[in-house]
């Protein structure tokens, strides 16, 4: 359910948001808009300034320039109002280990102004939603990381937020846990209509769940859009990349490919040829190979998946911004 930006109002909006730590610029004039009901992925390597950005959106860190507006409220000035509407799931969320999961939720609920019957009801509801009803009376110290993360989501939902910000939600969770988590995140956006901003450096999970994403390097957003838009932008850059494997895989195959019009470069890794070409040669290539008596086992345009996009953008950013190592995040 990709929400088109023209219809829904903007929920999160930053204008020229900047944060400096000494000489290091962690976030550099960030302009970001997230619309209501969408899942937005903030992608970038460690130290790109993702956590700093999320902290500024919550008013937990003061920006050195620009502003972050959530639901029409300035995050730095109306911090309490913003925090009432925005749930934050930090990277590696922690709970009071001597208290049970239920007690932890009760504490959060009371901080958010819930009491009595309404509070208990909400706790049960949320525990059921994150599938933690049975573990609710165990001490939080005994929880696994995946359980902590799920309890974290219940904790965030205690205040019934309109916006949820998640920092590296999939880090250190097993594949099954990630699948459940992604399903839950989609559910939060689609069923409840909440806006979700998640930051990650794990591309595949994000690819599955996000409506739109922004690629974030060295404090700058270098690209933003849906997966297709990002892929298209890459494709326009020039060379397309093909993956090919064919039978029989003999020496002549290489020559046949090389002889094609438009092929720039061929690389062989294990049983796959990676072909770079000046334009799309898929049609011509398959025809040619069929004529020569080859059977195509695999032919795929690379660049349409996030890994490729990611790599491309990082290459670009590396060329522009130099390769100095930024380690400001942790």
């Amino acid at each position: 359910m990709a929400v088109s930006g023209n219809v829904s109002p903007a929920v999160i909006q930053t204008k020229g948001l900047t944060k400096k730590y000494g000489s290091l610029t962690a976030v550099d004039h960030l302009d970001l808009t997230v619309y209501k009901g969408e899942v937005f992925g903030l992608l970038g390597p460690n130290g790109a300034g993702k956590t700093t950005t999320t902290l500024m959106l919550l008013g937990l860190a003061e920006p050195d320039g620009g502003e972050a507006v959530i639901n029409g409220l300035d995050a730095a000035k109306a911090s309490i109002e913003v925090k009432r509407k925005v749930g934050y799931l930090p990277d590696n969320v922690g709970f009071y280990s001597d208290m049970t999961g239920r007690e932890n939720l009760r504490f959060t609920g009371r901080l958010c102004g819930l009491e009595g019957e309404a509070l208990e009801q909400r706790i049960e509801e949320l525990l059921a939603r994150v599938n933690m009803t049975e573990a609710g009376d165990k001490r939080a110290g005994t929880y696994s990381r995946g359980m902590r993360q799920r309890l974290g989501i219940a904790d965030v939902l205690m205040k019934d937020p309109e916006v949820i910000i998640m920092d590296e939600p999939t880090l250190g969770i097993d594949p099954e846990g990630i699948r459940e988590l992604m399903w839950l995140i989609r559910d939060l956006a689609e069923k409840d209509g909440r806006t979700i901003l998640l930051s990650s450096h794990q591309l595949h999970q994000v690819q599955r769940v996000c409506d739109r994403m922004g690629i974030f390097v060295h404090g700058k957003m270098i690209a933003c859009g849906t997966l297709e838009e990002l892929g298209r932008e890459i494709a326009h850059e020039g060379a397309g990349t093909l993956e090919l494997s064919a039978y029989p895989d003999n020496i002549k195959l290489r020559d046949v490919i090389k002889g094609m019009n438009g092929v720039l470069e061929i690389e062989k890794n294990s049983d796959m040829y990676v072909i770079r070409s000046a334009f799309d040669i898929r049609r011509a290539l398959s025809k040619e190979l069929a004529e020569q008596g080859y059977t195509i086992l695999h032919l795929r345009q690379a660049g349409s998946d996030l890994d490729e996009i990611y790599r491309k953008y990082f290459e670009k950013a590396g060329e522009e911004g130099g390769t100095d190592d930024h380690t400001g995040e942790k």
Partner: peptide, 14 residues
């Protein structure tokens, strides 16, 4: 170190 502080400060409280 338990990671509860940043959860706490993100609640609507001073």
């Amino acid at each position: 170190t338990e990671g509860t502080l940043n959860r706490l400060v993100s609640q609507p409280l001073y």
